[in-house]
Design a protein around this nucleic acid. Structure first.
Length: 481
RNA sequence: GCGGGAGUAACUCAGUUGGUAGAGUCACAGCCUUCCAAGCUGUUGGUCGCGGGUUCGAGUCCCGUCUCCCGCUCCA
C-alpha cells in the first residue's frame, strides 16, 4: 500500500489535498496522470453504458431540494445515534447496542424498568415482543442505554454518554440567511438525481421501460472515519446507472446487469481472481437483492461496485412525497405501473484505485550488460493508460529528434503521447513502464532511410517495426472505443 | 473514536549525550551515447508536519495539534 501511495505521489497520480497546509483528513487530489486515468475509467464506463439504445445520460445538480432526502429515507436512516463509554472510550451505535442484547439481558432490562409486571416466569418470545414494544421511543432507549446496558468492551454499566446524532449528510445553506429554512444537503449519493428526473428523461427521450439513466458525479458523506487511501473518503465520485423495468421482470434484469458489470472489469484487463461477488444477507429497507463486486486491495477485499434490485421503492416514495405520479402507462398492454429499479453503482475513485493497484507490478528484467534489474511497470489496459504512447529519438543526432518531434506533434492531435529525448534509451523505456505507457515508438537511423519506426511493447518489451504513418491507426486499434 | 507506528529535499532515508541540516534517487542545463535505467560536469530544491514550552542554543527534550499507515470499531 505504501508503495502505491508513494508511486502515486512521485509520478503525479494522487496528491494529498491542501498538502502544504498539512493536508485535510481523507481528501485527495488527482494529479496530471491521475486525472487522465480517472477520466479514462469514467469514459470507459460512460461509453459502455450509453453507447446503446436503452440508456440515457444525465448530470444532475449536487444540491437538491431537502424533501428529496426525506423521501429517500436519508434524513431518517442516515442518522446514527452514537454513545461513548466514559470508562473505556469505546464508541457504539445505539441501534447496534440494542440489537446485540441477548434475550436474558433484555429480560433484565424489562424487569429493571417494570419490576411489578415482569416479576414471574417469562417466555423468550414474550420477552422479545415486549422489549420491542416498550423500548421503542428515544426516551426509553436512552434510559435503558444509560442505566441498564453494560458496555460490551469493559462490562461497566451506566458509563455511556448521552446519545449524539451523527448525520452522514453534509449540511449547508442556500442564500445569505443561515437558518433552518435554508438548509440543504450535499447529495450523499447520485441516485436520487436520477429518480427525481425519471419523468423528465422518460418524456424527453421517448424511452419506455426497460430503459436506464446513467450519471457520473460527486457525492459526499461525512464519514466518522476515512480509511485506506482513496477507499473511504468524504468526497467521492460515483458512476451510477438506474435501470427501470416492468415489475416482474426485475430478476431477469438483475442477472443481466450482474453479468454485464463483471464483464466490464474483465474486459478492462482485471484478473478474475482479483474479483469476487459478495451477497448481502442483511438487506437495506428498499432492497430485494443486492450483490457487490469486491476487489482484492492490498489491505483486503473491498467493495468497488454494488448491483442492487431496489424494487419500486424509490419512485413510489417520490410519488408519495412530491404528489406527482411516477407511474408509467404502457400503451400497448394498457397497463399502468410503477417501474422497478435495478441499480449499478460503482465508485470512480475506488475503481481508479483498483485499476491502479491491479496494474502495479515489479519484475526482474534483463539489462544490456547481461545482468538483471528490478523493473517497475504499471500494466494498465491500453484504454485506461494515462499516456497512450511515447515518441523517442534513439539519439539526438542526424535529425532523429526533429523527426520524432514531428511525429509526436501529429499524434498529439488525437492521443495523449509523450516526447522524450533525454537520457539513455533504456532509461526512457523504464520511465514509461513506470507510468504504464503501453507503446513506445522509437525513431532510429533506419527511420531516416525508410520512414519506419520501432514499436516497443510495454509488457513483453518486444519490438516490431511499422511505418511511421501507421502509428495513428496502430494506436486507434488498441486504445479507442 | 480507541490502540500501535510514522512524519527531515519531489521520492527513499541518515542525522551521535541538545551545538552551523546530509546522502542516494528524481528534476533541470550541458557532455557522452545506435535499443532496455541509475557514465561525466554543473545547478535548483529543506517553514525538519504545524503551534507552544524548556534552554545561551531544539530535527533531537516536554505539551498540544494535524496528517498518513496498521489493527479494532464503524460503513442507511
Amino acid at each position: 500500500m505504501d508503495k502505491i501511495v508513494s508511486l502515486a505521489k512521485r509520478r503525479g497520480f494522487v496528491f494529498q489535498s491542501s498538502e502544504i497546509y498539512g493536508g485535510l483528513n481523507g481528501c485527495w487530489d488527482y494529479g496530471p496522470l491521475g486525472v487522465e486515468l480517472l477520466n479514462n475509467v469514467k469514459q470507459a464506463w460512460w461509453r459502455t453504458m450509453t453507447l446503446r439504445d436503452d440508456i440515457e445520460g444525465l448530470d444532475a445538480s449536487i444540491l437538491m431540494h431537502p424533501r428529496v432526502w426525506e423521501a429517500s429515507g436519508h434524513v431518517a436512516n442516515f442518522t446514527d445515534p452514537m454513545v461513548d463509554c466514559k470508562s473505556c472510550k469505546a464508541r457504539y451505535r445505539v441501534d447496534v447496542l440494542m440489537e446485540e442484547l441477548s434475550v436474558k439481558k433484555k429480560k433484565d432490562v424489562l424487569r429493571g424498568l417494570f419490576p411489578q409486571e415482569f416479576a414471574g416466569q417469562l417466555q423468550d418470545e414474550k420477552v422479545l415482543e415486549e422489549f420491542t414494544q416498550r423500548i421503542s421511543t428515544d426516551e426509553t432507549i436512552a434510559q435503558v442505554i444509560q442505566t441498564l446496558v453494560p458496555c460490551p468492551n469493559c462490562g461497566n454499566k451506566a458509563t455511556f454518554t448521552e446519545a449524539r446524532q451523527f448525520n452522514l449528510m453534509f449540511k449547508t445553506f442556500v442564500g445569505p440567511v443561515e437558518d433552518t429554512n435554508s438548509v440543504v444537503y450535499l447529495r450523499p449519493e447520485t441516485a436520487q438525481g436520477i429518480f427525481v428526473n425519471f419523468l423528465n428523461v422518460l418524456n424527453a427521450s421517448r424511452q419506455r421501460p426497460p430503459f436506464g439513466i446513467a450519471q457520473i458525479g460527486k457525492a459526499f458523506r461525512n464519514e466518522i472515519n476515512t480509511k485506506n487511501f482513496l477507499f473511504r473518503t468524504r468526497e467521492f465520485e460515483q458512476m451510477e446507472m438506474q435501470y427501470f423495468v416492468k415489475p416482474g421482470d426485475e430478476d431477469t434484469w438483475f442477472e443481466y446487469w450482474r453479468e454485464a458489470r463483471m464483464k466490464w472489469f474483465l474486459d478492462l484487463g482485471m484478473k478474475p481472481e482479483k474479483l469476487r461477488w459478495h451477497k448481502h444477507e442483511k438487506l437495506a429497507h428498499y432492497a430485494k437483492a443486492a450483490f457487490d463486486i469486491e476487489f482484492e486491495f492490498p489491505f483486503g477485499w473491498g467493495e468497488v461496485e454494488g448491483i442492487h434490485s431496489r424494487t419500486d421503492f424509490d419512485l413510489s416514495r417520490h410519488e408519495e412525497y412530491s404528489g406527482k405520479s411516477m407511474k408509467y402507462f404502457d400503451d400497448q398492454t394498457k397497463e399502468k405501473y410503477t417501474p422497478c429499479v435495478i441499480e449499478t453503482s460503482i465508485g470512480a475513485s475506488r475503481s481508479f484505485m483498483a485499476f491502479l493497484t491491479a496494474a502495479f507490478d515489479e519484475e526482474m528484467a534483463a539489462t544490456g550488460e547481461g545482468g538483471e534489474e528490478m523493473r517497475t511497470v504499471l500494466r494498465f489496459h491500453p484504454k485506461l493508460a494515462p499516456m497512450k504512447g511515447a515518441i523517442l529519438p534513439l539519439v539526438n543526432r542526424e535529425g532523429m529528434d526533429e523527426q520524432a518531434r514531428v511525429i509526436a506533434r501529429d499524434l498529439q492531435k488525437y492521443f495523449r503521447v509523450f516526447y522524450d529525448d533525454s537520457g539513455a534509451i533504456g532509461r526512457r523505456y523504464r520511465r514509461q513502464d513506470e507510468i504504464g505507457t503501453p507503446y513506445c515508438f522509437t525513431v532510429d537511423s533506419q527511420t531516416l532511410l525508410d520512414q519506419t519506426v520501432t514499436v516497443r511493447d510495454r509488457d513483453s518489451m518486444r519490438q516490431e517495426r511499422i511505418a511511421a504513418d501507421q502509428i495513428k491507426s496502430y494506436l486507434f486499434d488498441r486504445v479507442a472505443g
